[in-house]
């Protein structure tokens, strides 16, 4: 049974038609590569799934239940976590504090509830270890590498035992070594039966981890096929429009 199913999703911003009748489904533990040119509608699509925008038309099913999210928090409660294109971290806080932001662990201290930094640091360290990342819980995010920031953003998604993780260009603007790290993080999620939608412009990354590739062009879905049945050349053609559909 699919964890996520989209039916005829459309979205327009005023006169701009960002998405047009996109349907999609996702199995547990499946990694879907979502590709398309700048402005094709990729970010808009994942933001709709994550509850940032409401679709102008169409339906979203999580498991078998139809959902209508009004706020990202509702989507998170349904097991959907998103790693935003700009990561949405707080630079001035530590890695562990960022991981737990908004759902901090506390302990009682007399009549007060105080932050339980010890437990949060330990739990974050464990998450980073699970993700096989060399990220130190007590380091400030400001001082971290791009790959480590990705690890923090992804570790956030692991807290809530998410079923679906949406990642918007996690490998843009990081070094080759760090790209490998992030791809390993994705494999780790897959290994734990979490479904992933990976948006990326980098063909090798998508072919390295994705099970299936979906291509959007000008808001329309023009292809949706297993990685084994396509090639980078074909996908490039689909993105640019040299190939109409496949």
């Amino acid at each position: 049974m699919s964890v996520l199913r989209l039916e005829w999703i459309s979205k327009h911003f005023g006169a701009i038609q960002a998405l047009e009748e996109v349907s999609l489904s996702l199995e547990p533990g499946e990694v879907l590569g979502l590709m398309g040119d700048n402005g094709a509608g990729k970010s808009t699509l994942v933001k709709i799934i994550a509850g940032n925008y409401r679709p102008s038309d169409g339906r979203i099913y999580i498991g078998d239940v139809q959902k209508d999210f009004h706020h990202p928090i509702e989507a998170r409660e349904s097991g959907i976590e998103i790693v935003y294109q700009d990561l949405a971290l707080c630079d001035n806080l530590t890695a562990a504090t960022n991981v737990f932001l908004g759902r901090e662990l506390t302990r009682s201290f007399g009549p007060f509830r105080v932050m339980d930094f010890g437990s949060m640091n330990a739990a974050a360290a464990k998450l980073f270890k699970e993700l096989k990342s060399e990220t130190r819980p007590k380091d400030l995010v400001r001082d971290m590498s791009g790959g480590q920031r990705q690890a923090v953003a992804i570790a956030r998604t692991r807290l809530a035992s998410a079923k679906i993780v949406l990642m918007d260009e996690p490998t843009a603007a990081i070094s080759v070594r760090q790209v490998a790290e992030v791809l390993n993080l994705i494999r780790e999620l897959k290994h734990q039966q979490i479904a992933v939608i990976l948006i990326s412009h980098r063909m090798p990354d998508v072919f390295a981890v994705a099970d299936r590739i979906t291509v959007l062009r000008r808001g329309r879905k023009v292809a949706d096929k297993p990685v084994s049945e396509t090639t980078p050349e074909e996908v490039t053609g689909l993105i640019t429009g040299a190939i109409q559909a496949a």
Binding site: P72, Y84, L89, C90, G102, R103
Partner: peptide, 15 residues
């Protein structure tokens, strides 16, 4: 501290 550094990010975490 969180809203001072990145208000949008803080809002998205449910703060």
């Amino acid at each position: 501290f969180a809203i001072g550094s990145n208000e949008r990010a803080a809002g998205l975490t449910g703060i």
